[in-house]
Structure formats: C-alpha cells, structure tokens
Design a protein around this nucleic acid. Structure first.
Lengths: 115, 115
DNA sequence: CAGGATCCGGCGAGATACTG
DNA sequence: CAGTATCTCGCCGGATCCTG
C-alpha cells in the first residue's frame, strides 16, 4: 500500500458526478429534494424501477452519507431523507433540475435538432 | 409510435446527469472548462484513458452538442471545445468541481469516516 | 496525430421468487 | 411493507493492432 507517490489527484468533477450517477440515483435524489419519502412512495414515483434495484441504489446513497434510512416499527415503514451532507448537494441538484427542464422543453417538440 | 399518452415526463435531474456521466466525460468536461484542447492534450491529462475510449466519449459529447470538434490540416491536429450550449453547463460544472474538491480534502486524510 | 476495427470480459441492472 | 436470494444478460469500457 501507499505506492505511487506520483499519484495525481482525482478529477473533482468526476468525484461529484460519480456519487450521483447510477441508473436511478438522480431520480431518487430528485424525489428527496423537498421532502422525506417512504420506500413505497419512491417506488411509485419512479416508474420502471424494481424493489431490488431501488434498495441497492438507496444503500449506495446511504453508504456515501448522502441520505439516511429511518425504520419505524409502530406503523411499519421505512423513510429516506437527505442528510445534512446530502443537502450540500441541493444547489447543484436544483441547477441541474432547471437545466434539464430547459433541455426537455427544447427537445419535446423537436424530435432531433433544434431550430 | 406515439403510444402512451400517459407517458410521464422524464426526471430533469436525470436528463442532465446522463449527459455528463459516462466513465470519462466529467474529466473531459473538466479539462475543457477553461480552454480549447487538442486530442493528445486531453489524453495526456486524463491518465488511464485509451485513444479509443477517449474518441468514443468525445463523439457522444459532440453528438449531444456539448462540445465541438475542429480538425485542422495545416499542422495536422484536432481541437475540442465547449459549444455555446455546452457553456451553459459551466456553472453546474464549476459548482461540482468545488464540491468535489471539498469532498477530496475531507477524504484524503481520513480513510473512511469523518470526525 | 488522431483515430477505426476487432475481440473480449466484468459489472451493473433486470426478472422472478421468497420472507421477517 | 420493505426488503433479500439467485440467476441471467447486455453493454460499456479495455487491450491490441491497424491506418489516412
């Protein structure tokens, strides 16, 4: 271990992108932007995702400290929310959301190219 | 075609993330943030990437209109730069770069968890 | 110098079935 | 309700060699 003294530091943009990429992570983070959500709610709001994959993606986000899992026994349920650390990504997520909406508006009428 | 009237609109965050994710796209965009770069320069600045993969990633970014390819014959060379459209992503990229640098500073000393 | 052509392997994601 | 256990597959990315 500790080899490669010439180890050059990773690209900071890549570091950030890697944490939020993954097939369904953007959707999950988008859903958690404004409120805490239950497992089932997330699954319903993300059409096409299976419980298994949703679980895996949530586990990774949790491992990276971006979200937190809260299990309750009273009414049996599990809730997910952004952590304080995850909240530091909110500005980025909001900007990406806005950018993406412009992108979608631009592409929904024009099938391929823009005017 | 034109099926599914109940087609619900894609997650705008995912749309944006998808355009800039891909194994090496964050690195490429990071390199093109402040200046135009030649193919060889990009390859040298992104250790570990092969010419083939670099080409493929560049082609995708070009197809998505985020970068432009400029080939010259005089001194034979090819330059890549962000398009005007790609420049609209700069604020996001800069914020991600800053966030990533904080992340790296936080993780370089502490192998696993923070204090 | 900046690619294209081929071949190949791994890993993330999906389908399905079972459970505390 | 919110998972876990298997099995499977496609495709993205990598290695290597060739070229205008």
């Amino acid at each position: 271990m500790e080899a490669e003294r010439t180890k050059q530091k990773p690209c900071p943009v890549k570091v950030t992108v890697d944490l939020i990429s993954g097939k369904w992570k953007p959707n999950i983070l988008y859903c958690l932007l404004d409120r805490t959500q239950r497992f089932g709610e997330l699954q319903r709001q993300i059409p096409g995702i299976s419980r298994r994959i949703l679980t895996l993606q949530l586990r990774e986000l949790e491992r990276d400290q971006l979200i937190i899992r809260m299990a309750y026994s009273e009414p049996i349920k599990v809730e997910y929310a952004l952590t304080e650390y995850g909240r530091s990504l909110v500005p980025i997520l909001l900007t990406m959301r806005d950018w993406g909406e412009v992108y979608l508006a631009r592409h929904e009428q024009q099938p391929v190219f823009m005017s």
